[in-house]
Structures are given as C-alpha cells and as structure tokens.
Design a binder for these strands. Structure first.
Lengths: 138, 138
DNA sequence: AGTTACGTTGACGTTAACGTAATCATAAAT
DNA sequence: ATTTATGATTACGTTAACGTCAACGTAACT
C-alpha cells in the first residue's frame, strides 16, 4: 500500500502537522496506522476524510465540536441502515431516530439560510466590483 | 428620534452587550451617539449596520478583521464613486483601484467556491435525512 | 427620597484551535 | 557510520472573541 506520512499529509490537505495531530487528539479523525517506530501512516482514504473535515470546518464554519457531533450521527445512521438491510433487526430506538432526523433537518434549514445570506452578500460584492470597474473604464 | 439603548440593541441583534461594546472597541462599528450621562444611544440605522456585521461574521465566517477590511474597502469605493460623479475629480490612484478590484474578485471567487461546497454538503445532509426517514417509515 | 434597574469603564478570566520550543527516537541521505 | 531530516511526545505560549466581576454613576420606578 502507498503509505503517506504526516508531512505529506499536511501538504495534501493544506493544514499543518500540528493541526492534524490535534484533530486526532480530540477524536475528530481516526487514529491512523502506525509503523513500528510509531510513525503515523495515512492512506489515501484517510486523506480524503481529512480533506472533508477541513472543508466542513473552513467552508461551513462548523466548530470542531459541531463536526464531531455530525460525524458521529452520520456514523450511527449508516450503522443502523446496514443493520436494517442485513438483518431486519430493529435494534434502534424510534425516539432516538426521530431526534436525529429533527437535528439533521435543523442543520439543513440553517444551511439553507446561510446560503441565502451568502447570495445576497455575493450580490453586494458583484455590485461593488461593477462600481470599481466603471471607475477604471474612464 | 427613537433612541435605542444597548440592552434593547442586544436583543434586536441577538448578540450580547459585551459583544457590541467590543465591536465598537475594535472599530468594527461606528461609536454611536451618547446621552449626557454617557449612555450609548443607537438609531435604527445603527442596528441595521450591526445586524449586517453579525450576519457577515456568522454566515460568511469572516473574522472581524476581514470584515473590517471589507468595510473599509467598501467605504472607500463608495467615496470615490461619489467624488467622481459630482466633481469629475480623478483623485484616486489607478493602481490602487486595480488592487481593490482584484481583492474583491478574489473574495467573490472564494465565496463561489464556498457555496459550491455548501451545496454538496447540503446534498449529503438531504441524503442522510432520506436514510433516516426510510428507517422511520417501517 | 430611596431603592432598584440599567449603563459605564476597567481589568482579569476563559475557551477553542492551534503555534512553538524542547527533547528524544528513528529514518534517510551521504 | 555519521550527519541530517523527519517524526513523536510533552508542555507551555498565543490569539481572537468575547465572559465575568468589581466599582461606580445615572435613570426609572414607587
């Protein structure tokens, strides 16, 4: 397999090595494999996961805590899904699922609102650019 | 005029009094009027400005510094525009304007990228919601 | 007029998200 | 076989964005 060390991982994701270790420390990403000498070894998949975490943080403005919450919810939902599909085993609690669904919908609506506001800001920006360019074209 | 004190201002904007004073302290908003007794008195317009600052911070994830930068650029552009329209006075420096335009365009592109990523996250969310609901509908 | 509520200015405290430096072990290059 | 580079751990430092508390003045209610 093509193992990736932390320095390259940092370059691939655009964050620092410290940040990567920190994310691992607070449980935001899975601890990767280790070599004999204790060296962290990442797979391509690990890197993809990291990138998605970074995106979510930087783009969505989620705090790392919020991200953790979301990721754990996602994990649990997918688990349940698999359980259901394979064994028809309804081990989940109905009320719990309903709670999860409510939380997700709230997130979805908040995102929607954010995007609306971004659009209006985007328009303001474009307007400003127009003004500046009209000043330049004289 | 209908003056608004800081406590009501806080309630209207959804942030704390401390945050409002802090924003004033770092120059993010204009210091409002004061009564004789040194009491801060805000106008409706002040509140609107505050709301927009809060939005930009929370929605766009701008740091207060970035916001300051943007607001100052905006102010200067509008100044120039007015100058130009009224006096045909080309007191601005061409190079400076070009720099500003470049900066704004960069912001615009970054926003575009952010919105794209938000959309894909939005889709992921909707997908998860679907999955949860399908689990519920059994 | 007295009490209660609200406002003001310091000033120190707090938390998240890392930065940085020291010290030691291992891996790579020469 | 040494340098040299890279990685790990530990621990203290830093910055932004406020929170909180103290001490005080002023408004508002009764």
């Amino acid at each position: 397999m093509n193992w990736i060390k932390i320095d390259e991982a940092a370059k691939m994701t655009g964050i620092t090595k410290r940040a990567i270790r920190y994310y691992e420390e607070i449980g935001l990403i899975q601890p990767p494999e280790r070599s004999d000498g204790q060296v962290r070894l990442y797979t391509e998949e690990d890197i993809e996961q990291l990138k998605r975490v970074v995106d979510a943080k930087e783009v969505l403005g989620f705090s790392l805590q919020e991200l953790q919450h979301f990721l754990s919810i996602k994990g649990r939902v997918l688990e349940h899904k698999v359980q259901y599909e394979t064994s028809r085993d309804k081990t989940f609690k109905q009320s719990e699922l309903e709670e999860i669904a409510a939380g997700l919908k709230e997130q979805r609506d908040m995102l929607e609102e954010k995007m609306e506001k971004m659009k209006s800001f985007q328009n303001e920006l474009k307007d400003l650019i127009q003004k500046v360019e009209s000043l330049l074209k004289v």
